[in-house]
């Protein structure tokens, strides 16, 4: 898996102290440059989408409805409560916690709220392990789940360009001959996650997470763990 090797090499080069020429400043440049390279990636996916636009319209219902599938993150809320999280759990489990979601949560609860602490935690951890984890997850799922190839393609549009990229790789490799369709669906679904997904979070996911929290917290909420509050 060349994809995972490159991520790990990049990380190791940064963290390895003897390698002096990739330092914090270079990392900051790499981060800024990433924004630009995301553009190239998105452009390639968009060209595939444009090419297959009639197919995308034909698959419209599946593409739109799978955005609602992202609500499944709320299923993690009880586990977060059992692990001792309080209001942080609302920020943690309402969505995948990427840039647009962080913006929504901070906007609604304020920068210093417990909810924002939760979404920041998911954001940082997602940045560090998300790409590697999702490529393992996808590789594993492709061999064990008998789902439609298009379903795998659509699911890879989780609303994060790097996770999208990491999820497409193994999917393309698993279905040779369907490259254009998979790229089209993956790209379009990621685009939907960015522009439609955010409204699903604002109007459905967050209110629903709050309701379930109010209902579940008195039942299964734990004492807030001391080390946990220290951590955050």
């Amino acid at each position: 898996m060349p994809l995972i090797y490159t991520i790990i090499l990049g990380l190791v080069f940064y963290l390895a102290k003897p390698i002096k020429w990739i330092q914090r400043k270079q990392a900051r440049i790499a981060e800024g440059a990433m924004m630009l390279f995301i553009g190239v990636l998105i452009a390639k996916l968009a060209v595939s989408s444009g090419q297959s636009i009639s197919l995308i319209f034909k698959m419209g219902p599946a593409l739109i409805l799978q955005e609602l599938g992202h609500l499944a993150t709320i299923l993690v809320l009880p586990i977060a409560l059992l692990l001792g999280f309080k209001k942080e759990a609302i920020g943690m489990t309402n969505s995948i916690g990427r840039e647009p979601n962080v913006a929504v949560v901070v906007d609604k609860y304020g920068f210093n709220s417990a909810e924002s602490r939760g979404v920041f935690a998911i954001f940082i951890i997602g940045t560090v392990i998300g790409t590697i984890f999702i490529s393992f997850l996808v590789t594993f799922s492709l061999s064990f789940l008998p789902l439609h190839p298009y379903a795998f393609a659509m699911a890879s549009g989780v609303g994060s360009a790097s996770m999208n990229a990491a999820a497409i790789g193994p999917t393309l490799a698993a279905f040779p001959g369907l490259e254009t369709q998979i790229e089209a669906f993956a790209g379009f679904s990621n685009l939907l996650s960015f522009c439609v997904g955010i409204y699903i979070v604002i109007f459905v996911a967050l209110p629903l997470t709050e309701k379930i929290y109010d209902w579940l917290e008195p039942k299964i909420g734990r004492e807030a763990l001391v080390p946990e509050t220290e951590d955050e």
Binding site: G69, H70, V76, I79, M92, A121, I129, L147, M154, V158
Partner: peptide
Amino acid sequence: RAVVITILVIAATYYGAAIVAHIVLV
């Protein structure tokens, strides 16, 4: 604990979308 939650959240997003898409496609 936060790492556990992150992993579960990413998996839930992915499987949620994949399963809904699969059902609608079928």
